[in-house]
Design a protein around this nucleic acid. Structure first.
Length: 452
DNA sequence: AAGCTGACGCTTCCTACAAG
DNA sequence: CTTGTAGGAAGCGTCAGCTT
Protein backbone atom coordinates (compact mmCIF):
# COMPACT_ATOMS: atom_id res chain seq x y z
CA UNK A 1 0.00 0.00 0.00
CA UNK A 2 2.94 2.40 0.50
CA UNK A 3 4.37 1.89 -3.00
CA UNK A 4 3.26 3.25 -6.33
CA UNK A 5 3.67 0.64 -9.06
CA UNK A 6 3.50 1.28 -12.77
CA UNK A 7 3.75 -1.68 -15.09
CA UNK A 8 3.36 -2.03 -18.84
CA UNK A 9 2.88 -5.60 -19.99
CA UNK A 10 4.14 -6.98 -23.36
CA UNK A 11 0.83 -6.08 -24.98
CA UNK A 12 1.30 -2.49 -24.01
CA UNK A 13 -1.35 -2.47 -21.29
CA UNK A 14 -0.56 -0.10 -18.48
CA UNK A 15 -1.13 -1.19 -14.91
CA UNK A 16 -1.01 1.54 -12.33
CA UNK A 17 -1.28 1.00 -8.59
CA UNK A 18 -1.06 4.31 -6.75
CA UNK A 19 0.10 4.33 -3.16
CA UNK A 20 -2.73 4.53 -0.66
CA UNK A 21 -0.84 5.55 2.45
CA UNK A 22 1.89 8.04 3.15
CA UNK A 23 3.28 6.24 6.15
CA UNK A 24 6.15 3.87 5.56
CA UNK A 25 6.77 0.77 7.62
CA UNK A 26 9.65 1.22 10.06
CA UNK A 27 12.98 0.27 8.50
CA UNK A 28 14.75 -2.74 9.98
CA UNK A 29 17.89 -2.23 12.05
CA UNK A 30 21.03 -4.25 11.74
CA UNK A 31 21.64 -6.86 14.42
CA UNK A 32 24.27 -9.48 15.18
CA UNK A 33 23.49 -13.08 14.24
CA UNK A 34 21.73 -15.12 16.93
CA UNK A 35 23.84 -18.04 18.20
CA UNK A 36 21.12 -20.53 17.28
CA UNK A 37 20.98 -19.30 13.72
CA UNK A 38 24.63 -19.48 12.59
CA UNK A 39 26.48 -22.24 10.74
CA UNK A 40 30.08 -23.44 10.96
CA UNK A 41 31.23 -21.40 7.99
CA UNK A 42 29.88 -18.19 9.50
CA UNK A 43 31.55 -18.84 12.85
CA UNK A 44 34.84 -19.54 11.13
CA UNK A 45 34.63 -16.24 9.33
CA UNK A 46 33.81 -14.37 12.53
CA UNK A 47 36.81 -15.99 14.26
CA UNK A 48 39.13 -14.95 11.47
CA UNK A 49 38.03 -11.35 11.87
CA UNK A 50 37.58 -11.11 15.61
CA UNK A 51 39.66 -8.85 17.78
CA UNK A 52 38.53 -10.42 21.01
CA UNK A 53 41.01 -12.52 22.93
CA UNK A 54 38.77 -14.62 25.18
CA UNK A 55 35.67 -16.70 24.63
CA UNK A 56 33.36 -14.67 26.86
CA UNK A 57 33.87 -11.39 25.03
CA UNK A 58 33.94 -13.28 21.73
CA UNK A 59 30.41 -14.50 22.32
CA UNK A 60 29.30 -11.17 23.68
CA UNK A 61 30.57 -9.03 20.84
CA UNK A 62 29.65 -11.21 17.89
CA UNK A 63 26.34 -12.75 18.83
CA UNK A 64 22.90 -11.34 19.37
CA UNK A 65 21.45 -11.33 22.88
CA UNK A 66 24.46 -12.91 24.54
CA UNK A 67 25.76 -11.12 27.63
CA UNK A 68 28.28 -11.97 30.25
CA UNK A 69 26.04 -14.28 32.25
CA UNK A 70 24.80 -16.27 29.32
CA UNK A 71 28.23 -16.57 27.77
CA UNK A 72 29.79 -17.86 30.99
CA UNK A 73 26.99 -20.32 31.65
CA UNK A 74 27.14 -21.61 28.09
CA UNK A 75 30.93 -22.04 28.07
CA UNK A 76 30.86 -23.86 31.41
CA UNK A 77 28.20 -26.19 30.09
CA UNK A 78 29.97 -27.13 26.88
CA UNK A 79 33.36 -27.41 28.57
CA UNK A 80 35.31 -24.68 26.80
CA UNK A 81 37.47 -22.44 28.99
CA UNK A 82 36.23 -18.87 29.44
CA UNK A 83 39.73 -17.49 28.81
CA UNK A 84 40.47 -19.46 25.66
CA UNK A 85 41.57 -17.39 22.69
CA UNK A 86 38.92 -17.91 19.98
CA UNK A 87 41.64 -17.94 17.29
CA UNK A 88 43.08 -21.07 18.85
CA UNK A 89 39.88 -23.11 18.41
CA UNK A 90 40.53 -26.21 16.32
CA UNK A 91 38.19 -27.00 13.39
CA UNK A 92 36.47 -29.85 15.23
CA UNK A 93 36.04 -27.60 18.29
CA UNK A 94 34.31 -25.04 16.11
CA UNK A 95 31.95 -27.71 14.83
CA UNK A 96 30.97 -28.81 18.32
CA UNK A 97 30.66 -25.18 19.41
CA UNK A 98 28.17 -24.50 16.63
CA UNK A 99 26.26 -27.69 17.33
CA UNK A 100 25.94 -26.81 21.02
CA UNK A 101 24.91 -23.28 20.13
CA UNK A 102 21.97 -24.68 18.18
CA UNK A 103 20.79 -26.91 21.01
CA UNK A 104 21.56 -24.75 24.07
CA UNK A 105 18.25 -23.76 25.57
CA UNK A 106 19.06 -20.68 27.60
CA UNK A 107 19.90 -18.15 24.91
CA UNK A 108 17.37 -15.39 24.94
CA UNK A 109 15.15 -15.36 21.87
CA UNK A 110 16.26 -13.00 19.12
CA UNK A 111 15.05 -9.44 19.06
CA UNK A 112 12.53 -8.61 16.36
CA UNK A 113 13.65 -5.02 15.77
CA UNK A 114 15.69 -6.26 12.80
CA UNK A 115 12.38 -7.06 11.08
CA UNK A 116 10.21 -4.70 9.12
CA UNK A 117 6.60 -5.77 9.38
CA UNK A 118 3.89 -3.83 7.59
CA UNK A 119 2.02 -3.00 10.74
CA UNK A 120 -1.69 -3.41 11.29
CA UNK A 121 -2.54 -0.03 9.84
CA UNK A 122 -0.76 -0.57 6.52
CA UNK A 123 -1.94 -4.13 6.11
CA UNK A 124 -5.51 -3.04 6.66
CA UNK A 125 -5.08 -0.19 4.18
CA UNK A 126 -3.72 -2.64 1.62
CA UNK A 127 -6.60 -5.04 2.07
CA UNK A 128 -9.21 -2.31 1.88
CA UNK A 129 -7.63 -0.90 -1.25
CA UNK A 130 -7.56 -4.19 -3.15
CA UNK A 131 -10.78 -5.88 -2.04
CA UNK A 132 -12.93 -3.10 -0.61
CA UNK A 133 -14.58 -5.48 1.85
CA UNK A 134 -17.34 -4.77 4.37
CA UNK A 135 -15.26 -5.93 7.26
CA UNK A 136 -11.54 -6.14 7.93
CA UNK A 137 -9.73 -7.35 11.01
CA UNK A 138 -5.96 -7.25 11.14
CA UNK A 139 -3.71 -8.71 13.78
CA UNK A 140 0.01 -8.43 14.28
CA UNK A 141 1.24 -11.23 16.51
CA UNK A 142 4.00 -10.46 18.98
CA UNK A 143 7.44 -11.49 17.72
CA UNK A 144 8.52 -15.06 18.14
CA UNK A 145 11.39 -17.14 16.83
CA UNK A 146 12.37 -20.49 15.46
CA UNK A 147 15.91 -21.83 15.30
CA UNK A 148 17.47 -18.47 16.07
CA UNK A 149 15.48 -16.55 13.48
CA UNK A 150 13.01 -13.99 14.74
CA UNK A 151 9.70 -13.74 12.95
CA UNK A 152 6.48 -11.79 13.08
CA UNK A 153 3.20 -13.03 11.72
CA UNK A 154 0.62 -10.59 10.48
CA UNK A 155 -2.83 -11.85 9.69
CA UNK A 156 -5.80 -10.14 8.13
CA UNK A 157 -9.30 -11.30 7.43
CA UNK A 158 -11.65 -9.64 4.96
CA UNK A 159 -15.34 -10.31 4.64
CA UNK A 160 -18.03 -9.26 2.19
CA UNK A 161 -17.86 -6.33 -0.20
CA UNK A 162 -15.46 -6.95 -3.03
CA UNK A 163 -14.31 -10.31 -1.68
CA UNK A 164 -15.27 -12.94 -4.22
CA UNK A 165 -17.50 -15.76 -3.06
CA UNK A 166 -16.09 -19.24 -3.25
CA UNK A 167 -16.46 -22.60 -1.54
CA UNK A 168 -12.95 -22.32 -0.16
CA UNK A 169 -11.62 -19.49 1.93
CA UNK A 170 -9.38 -17.37 -0.27
CA UNK A 171 -5.81 -17.22 0.97
CA UNK A 172 -3.27 -14.54 0.18
CA UNK A 173 0.26 -15.23 1.36
CA UNK A 174 3.15 -12.83 1.74
CA UNK A 175 6.73 -13.45 2.82
CA UNK A 176 8.70 -10.33 3.75
CA UNK A 177 6.14 -8.27 1.79
CA UNK A 178 6.51 -10.42 -1.33
CA UNK A 179 3.33 -12.16 -2.49
CA UNK A 180 3.58 -15.92 -2.96
CA UNK A 181 1.58 -17.04 -5.94
CA UNK A 182 1.90 -20.78 -6.43
CA UNK A 183 1.47 -24.04 -4.54
CA UNK A 184 -0.93 -22.38 -2.18
CA UNK A 185 -2.40 -25.60 -0.83
CA UNK A 186 1.00 -26.84 0.34
CA UNK A 187 1.64 -23.83 2.51
CA UNK A 188 1.50 -23.82 6.32
CA UNK A 189 -1.20 -21.20 6.23
CA UNK A 190 -3.40 -23.45 4.10
CA UNK A 191 -2.76 -26.29 6.51
CA UNK A 192 -3.76 -24.11 9.44
CA UNK A 193 -6.90 -22.89 7.69
CA UNK A 194 -7.95 -26.43 6.89
CA UNK A 195 -7.45 -27.49 10.49
CA UNK A 196 -9.68 -24.76 11.93
CA UNK A 197 -13.23 -25.66 12.70
CA UNK A 198 -14.90 -22.74 11.02
CA UNK A 199 -18.44 -23.61 11.97
CA UNK A 200 -17.51 -22.60 15.49
CA UNK A 201 -17.00 -19.06 14.22
CA UNK A 202 -20.32 -19.05 12.37
CA UNK A 203 -18.44 -19.24 9.11
CA UNK A 204 -19.86 -21.54 6.47
CA UNK A 205 -18.44 -22.52 3.10
CA UNK A 206 -19.49 -20.10 0.39
CA UNK A 207 -19.11 -16.99 2.50
CA UNK A 208 -16.98 -14.27 0.90
CA UNK A 209 -13.92 -14.52 3.11
CA UNK A 210 -10.30 -13.81 2.34
CA UNK A 211 -7.40 -14.40 4.69
CA UNK A 212 -4.06 -12.63 4.47
CA UNK A 213 -0.99 -14.13 6.08
CA UNK A 214 2.20 -12.13 6.11
CA UNK A 215 5.32 -13.75 7.48
CA UNK A 216 8.23 -11.45 8.26
CA UNK A 217 11.50 -13.06 9.20
CA UNK A 218 15.25 -12.96 8.72
CA UNK A 219 14.92 -16.42 7.23
CA UNK A 220 11.75 -17.69 5.63
CA UNK A 221 11.75 -21.49 5.70
CA UNK A 222 10.73 -22.19 2.13
CA UNK A 223 10.30 -25.86 1.45
CA UNK A 224 11.69 -25.76 -2.07
CA UNK A 225 14.14 -23.73 -4.11
CA UNK A 226 11.17 -22.23 -5.92
CA UNK A 227 10.40 -20.16 -2.80
CA UNK A 228 6.70 -20.58 -3.27
CA UNK A 229 5.45 -22.16 -0.10
CA UNK A 230 6.46 -22.03 3.50
CA UNK A 231 7.38 -25.13 5.44
CA UNK A 232 5.27 -26.08 8.43
CA UNK A 233 7.56 -25.27 11.29
CA UNK A 234 5.53 -25.74 14.46
CA UNK A 235 6.46 -22.31 15.83
CA UNK A 236 5.15 -20.65 12.69
CA UNK A 237 2.09 -22.80 12.65
CA UNK A 238 1.15 -21.84 16.20
CA UNK A 239 1.54 -18.12 15.55
CA UNK A 240 -0.36 -18.21 12.27
CA UNK A 241 -3.10 -20.17 13.95
CA UNK A 242 -3.42 -17.72 16.82
CA UNK A 243 -3.51 -14.82 14.41
CA UNK A 244 -6.20 -16.35 12.27
CA UNK A 245 -8.30 -17.34 15.27
CA UNK A 246 -8.07 -13.84 16.69
CA UNK A 247 -9.32 -12.45 13.39
CA UNK A 248 -12.01 -15.11 13.22
CA UNK A 249 -13.29 -14.13 16.65
CA UNK A 250 -13.64 -10.53 15.53
CA UNK A 251 -15.37 -11.62 12.35
CA UNK A 252 -17.76 -13.78 14.33
CA UNK A 253 -18.77 -10.77 16.42
CA UNK A 254 -19.36 -8.81 13.23
CA UNK A 255 -21.47 -11.57 11.70
CA UNK A 256 -23.46 -11.98 14.89
CA UNK A 257 -24.13 -8.31 14.93
CA UNK A 258 -25.26 -8.34 11.33
CA UNK A 259 -27.62 -11.20 12.05
CA UNK A 260 -28.99 -9.35 15.02
CA UNK A 261 -29.60 -6.24 12.96
CA UNK A 262 -31.49 -8.32 10.43
CA UNK A 263 -33.58 -9.81 13.23
CA UNK A 264 -34.33 -6.40 14.67
CA UNK A 265 -35.47 -5.14 11.29
CA UNK A 266 -37.74 -8.11 10.88
CA UNK A 267 -39.09 -7.67 14.35
CA UNK A 268 -39.81 -4.03 13.70
CA UNK A 269 -41.84 -4.87 10.61
CA UNK A 270 -43.85 -7.30 12.69
CA UNK A 271 -44.52 -4.65 15.32
CA UNK A 272 -45.69 -2.26 12.69
CA UNK A 273 -48.05 -4.82 11.29
CA UNK A 274 -49.59 -6.27 14.41
CA UNK A 275 -49.30 -3.65 17.11
CA UNK A 276 -52.34 -1.69 15.89
CA UNK A 277 -54.42 -4.86 15.82
CA UNK A 278 -53.30 -5.98 19.24
CA UNK A 279 -53.91 -2.57 20.73
CA UNK A 280 -57.38 -2.55 19.24
CA UNK A 281 -58.17 -5.97 20.71
CA UNK A 282 -56.78 -5.09 24.09
CA UNK A 283 -58.81 -1.90 24.17
CA UNK A 284 -61.96 -3.86 23.49
CA UNK A 285 -61.10 -6.53 26.04
CA UNK A 286 -60.32 -3.95 28.69
CA UNK A 287 -63.60 -2.29 28.03
CA UNK A 288 -61.97 1.03 27.29
CA UNK A 289 -63.33 3.26 24.67
CA UNK A 290 -60.23 5.12 23.57
CA UNK A 291 -57.20 3.31 22.20
CA UNK A 292 -53.89 4.22 23.90
CA UNK A 293 -51.33 5.93 21.74
CA UNK A 294 -48.80 3.29 20.76
CA UNK A 295 -47.11 5.24 17.97
CA UNK A 296 -44.71 6.87 20.43
CA UNK A 297 -43.45 3.46 21.46
CA UNK A 298 -43.10 2.31 17.92
CA UNK A 299 -41.12 5.40 16.98
CA UNK A 300 -38.86 4.87 19.94
CA UNK A 301 -38.17 1.32 18.99
CA UNK A 302 -37.62 2.31 15.39
CA UNK A 303 -35.05 4.85 16.44
CA UNK A 304 -33.15 2.36 18.52
CA UNK A 305 -33.17 -0.15 15.71
CA UNK A 306 -31.89 2.39 13.22
CA UNK A 307 -29.13 3.40 15.58
CA UNK A 308 -28.20 -0.22 15.80
CA UNK A 309 -28.08 -0.59 12.05
CA UNK A 310 -26.00 2.53 11.62
CA UNK A 311 -23.56 1.33 14.24
CA UNK A 312 -23.38 -2.05 12.60
CA UNK A 313 -22.45 -0.82 9.16
CA UNK A 314 -20.05 1.88 10.19
CA UNK A 315 -17.22 1.59 12.64
CA UNK A 316 -17.88 -1.85 13.98
CA UNK A 317 -15.11 -2.80 16.31
CA UNK A 318 -15.49 -4.81 19.45
CA UNK A 319 -17.04 -1.88 21.28
CA UNK A 320 -20.37 -3.59 21.59
CA UNK A 321 -21.40 -6.29 23.96
CA UNK A 322 -24.17 -8.78 24.28
CA UNK A 323 -27.19 -7.25 25.91
CA UNK A 324 -26.22 -3.72 25.19
CA UNK A 325 -28.67 -3.63 22.31
CA UNK A 326 -31.73 -5.16 23.81
CA UNK A 327 -32.69 -2.81 26.63
CA UNK A 328 -35.09 -1.24 24.18
CA UNK A 329 -37.39 -4.17 24.78
CA UNK A 330 -37.11 -3.89 28.51
CA UNK A 331 -38.07 -0.30 28.16
CA UNK A 332 -41.07 -1.32 26.16
CA UNK A 333 -42.05 -3.79 28.82
CA UNK A 334 -41.68 -1.22 31.54
CA UNK A 335 -44.15 0.94 29.78
CA UNK A 336 -46.59 -1.87 29.87
CA UNK A 337 -47.35 -2.59 26.27
CA UNK A 338 -44.91 -5.19 25.12
CA UNK A 339 -45.35 -7.43 28.13
CA UNK A 340 -45.91 -11.07 27.40
CA UNK A 341 -45.94 -10.60 23.72
CA UNK A 342 -44.29 -13.62 22.26
CA UNK A 343 -42.71 -11.46 19.62
CA UNK A 344 -40.45 -9.82 22.15
CA UNK A 345 -38.50 -12.96 22.86
CA UNK A 346 -34.80 -12.30 23.20
CA UNK A 347 -32.05 -14.61 22.09
CA UNK A 348 -32.26 -18.25 21.16
CA UNK A 349 -32.59 -19.75 24.60
CA UNK A 350 -35.44 -17.52 25.51
CA UNK A 351 -37.13 -18.29 22.23
CA UNK A 352 -36.98 -21.95 23.00
CA UNK A 353 -38.31 -21.53 26.49
CA UNK A 354 -41.32 -19.68 25.33
CA UNK A 355 -41.90 -21.97 22.42
CA UNK A 356 -41.82 -24.95 24.68
CA UNK A 357 -44.27 -23.47 27.11
CA UNK A 358 -46.60 -22.69 24.31
CA UNK A 359 -46.58 -26.19 22.98
CA UNK A 360 -47.01 -27.75 26.36
CA UNK A 361 -50.26 -25.95 26.66
CA UNK A 362 -50.98 -27.29 23.25
CA UNK A 363 -53.48 -24.69 22.20
CA UNK A 364 -51.56 -21.60 21.49
CA UNK A 365 -50.50 -22.42 17.99
CA UNK A 366 -53.91 -23.02 16.45
CA UNK A 367 -55.15 -19.99 18.33
CA UNK A 368 -52.46 -17.91 16.77
CA UNK A 369 -53.35 -19.18 13.36
CA UNK A 370 -57.01 -18.29 13.77
CA UNK A 371 -55.92 -14.87 14.85
CA UNK A 372 -53.98 -14.43 11.67
CA UNK A 373 -56.86 -15.59 9.57
CA UNK A 374 -59.09 -13.19 11.35
CA UNK A 375 -56.84 -10.34 10.32
CA UNK A 376 -56.81 -11.44 6.76
CA UNK A 377 -53.48 -13.19 6.77
CA UNK A 378 -53.59 -16.42 4.78
CA UNK A 379 -52.71 -19.57 6.72
CA UNK A 380 -49.65 -20.40 4.69
CA UNK A 381 -48.36 -16.86 4.81
CA UNK A 382 -44.62 -16.58 5.04
CA UNK A 383 -44.52 -13.87 7.61
CA UNK A 384 -42.10 -15.07 10.23
CA UNK A 385 -43.58 -14.94 13.68
CA UNK A 386 -40.50 -15.06 15.82
CA UNK A 387 -36.94 -14.25 15.15
CA UNK A 388 -36.32 -17.94 14.85
CA UNK A 389 -39.15 -19.28 12.73
CA UNK A 390 -37.58 -22.70 12.29
CA UNK A 391 -37.67 -23.62 15.92
CA UNK A 392 -40.89 -21.90 16.78
CA UNK A 393 -43.39 -22.97 14.20
CA UNK A 394 -42.15 -25.98 12.35
CA UNK A 395 -41.48 -28.06 15.42
CA UNK A 396 -44.33 -30.30 16.40
CA UNK A 397 -45.54 -30.01 19.97
CA UNK A 398 -44.35 -33.45 21.06
CA UNK A 399 -40.87 -32.86 19.77
CA UNK A 400 -40.33 -29.42 21.11
CA UNK A 401 -38.73 -30.27 24.41
CA UNK A 402 -36.86 -33.19 22.95
CA UNK A 403 -35.30 -31.02 20.33
CA UNK A 404 -34.05 -28.62 22.90
CA UNK A 405 -32.21 -31.32 24.81
CA UNK A 406 -30.66 -32.72 21.69
CA UNK A 407 -29.41 -29.34 20.65
CA UNK A 408 -27.72 -28.64 23.92
CA UNK A 409 -26.00 -32.00 23.79
CA UNK A 410 -24.78 -31.31 20.31
CA UNK A 411 -23.38 -28.00 21.43
CA UNK A 412 -21.53 -29.62 24.28
CA UNK A 413 -19.97 -32.11 21.97
CA UNK A 414 -18.90 -29.39 19.63
CA UNK A 415 -17.06 -27.72 22.43
CA UNK A 416 -15.42 -30.97 23.44
CA UNK A 417 -14.25 -31.64 19.95
CA UNK A 418 -12.86 -28.20 19.57
CA UNK A 419 -10.97 -28.47 22.81
CA UNK A 420 -9.41 -31.82 22.02
CA UNK A 421 -8.48 -30.84 18.51
CA UNK A 422 -6.70 -27.72 19.62
CA UNK A 423 -4.74 -29.54 22.27
CA UNK A 424 -3.83 -32.07 19.65
CA UNK A 425 -2.52 -29.34 17.46
CA UNK A 426 -0.35 -28.06 20.25
CA UNK A 427 1.18 -31.31 21.31
CA UNK A 428 1.07 -32.60 17.76
CA UNK A 429 1.45 -36.20 18.89
CA UNK A 430 -1.01 -36.95 21.64
CA UNK A 431 -3.25 -39.94 21.82
CA UNK A 432 -6.65 -39.48 20.32
CA UNK A 433 -8.23 -41.99 22.69
CA UNK A 434 -8.54 -40.79 26.30
CA UNK A 435 -10.30 -37.45 26.23
CA UNK A 436 -11.21 -35.30 29.14
CA UNK A 437 -10.75 -37.86 31.87
CA UNK A 438 -6.98 -37.96 32.15
CA UNK A 439 -6.85 -34.20 32.12
CA UNK A 440 -9.33 -34.01 34.96
CA UNK A 441 -7.37 -36.54 36.95
CA UNK A 442 -4.21 -34.55 36.64
CA UNK A 443 -6.12 -31.45 37.71
CA UNK A 444 -7.26 -33.17 40.83
CA UNK A 445 -3.74 -34.33 41.43
CA UNK A 446 -2.52 -30.80 41.15
CA UNK A 447 -5.20 -29.64 43.51
CA UNK A 448 -4.34 -32.18 46.12
CA UNK A 449 -0.69 -31.43 45.74
CA UNK A 450 -1.38 -27.77 46.25
CA UNK A 451 -3.36 -28.55 49.39
CA UNK A 452 -0.57 -30.66 50.79
C1' DA B 1 45.06 2.15 20.69
C1' DA B 2 42.23 -1.63 21.53
C1' DG B 3 39.67 -4.26 24.41
C1' DC B 4 37.52 -4.79 29.06
C1' DT B 5 34.48 -3.33 32.94
C1' DG B 6 30.74 -1.22 35.36
C1' DA B 7 26.45 1.63 35.74
C1' DC B 8 22.02 2.67 34.06
C1' DG B 9 17.90 2.17 31.44
C1' DC B 10 15.07 -0.80 29.01
C1' DT B 11 13.19 -5.10 27.40
C1' DT B 12 11.88 -9.64 28.21
C1' DC B 13 10.73 -13.43 31.12
C1' DC B 14 8.20 -15.53 34.79
C1' DT B 15 4.37 -16.19 37.64
C1' DA B 16 -0.22 -15.67 39.21
C1' DC B 17 -4.63 -14.58 38.11
C1' DA B 18 -8.91 -13.51 35.52
C1' DA B 19 -11.92 -13.97 31.66
C1' DG B 20 -13.96 -16.27 27.89
C1' DC C 1 -7.92 -24.89 28.24
C1' DT C 2 -6.28 -20.76 26.06
C1' DT C 3 -5.26 -16.07 26.10
C1' DG C 4 -4.31 -11.67 28.04
C1' DT C 5 -2.55 -8.71 31.83
C1' DA C 6 0.13 -6.92 35.75
C1' DG C 7 4.08 -6.66 38.67
C1' DG C 8 8.57 -7.90 39.86
C1' DA C 9 13.08 -9.87 38.63
C1' DA C 10 16.75 -10.84 35.51
C1' DG C 11 19.67 -9.88 31.92
C1' DC C 12 20.98 -7.33 27.71
C1' DG C 13 22.68 -3.07 25.20
C1' DT C 14 24.97 1.09 25.39
C1' DC C 15 28.23 4.31 26.76
C1' DA C 16 31.94 6.21 29.39
C1' DG C 17 35.97 5.39 31.77
C1' DC C 18 39.71 2.16 32.92
C1' DT C 19 43.40 -1.28 31.96
C1' DT C 20 46.71 -3.68 29.28
Amino acid sequence: PYATITFIDPDGVLYFFPRSVEKMPPPPTEVLPHPRGVDVEQVRRIISETKTRDMVSFLRTHFHRVGKKTAEKFLDEIGISRDKDPRELKPDEIVTLVRKMKTYKEFLPPDAKCLSPLGEELLEAGIRKELNPDFVKVVQRPPSSYGGHPFIVEVGIAYGGGVPRSEEIILYRFANKIPLLFDEYKDVSAKVIRSIKWSRYRIKPGMPIAIFVHLVSTNIPFKTAGKEFIADRPELEVEIRRGILECARALMRYIQRKERVAREKQRLSIYEKFLPLIVRDITILAGEEKEPDYTVLLEKYKMITEEEIAGGEGAMEEEFEEGEVVPSLEELEEEGVAVEMDLTVEGEDAAEEVTEERFVEGETVPELETHLEQYGVPEDSEIPLTDNPGSALEVKPAEASHKKVVRKKAEKEKVKEEGSSSSKAKRSSSKSGGRAKPARKSDKKKESEAKE
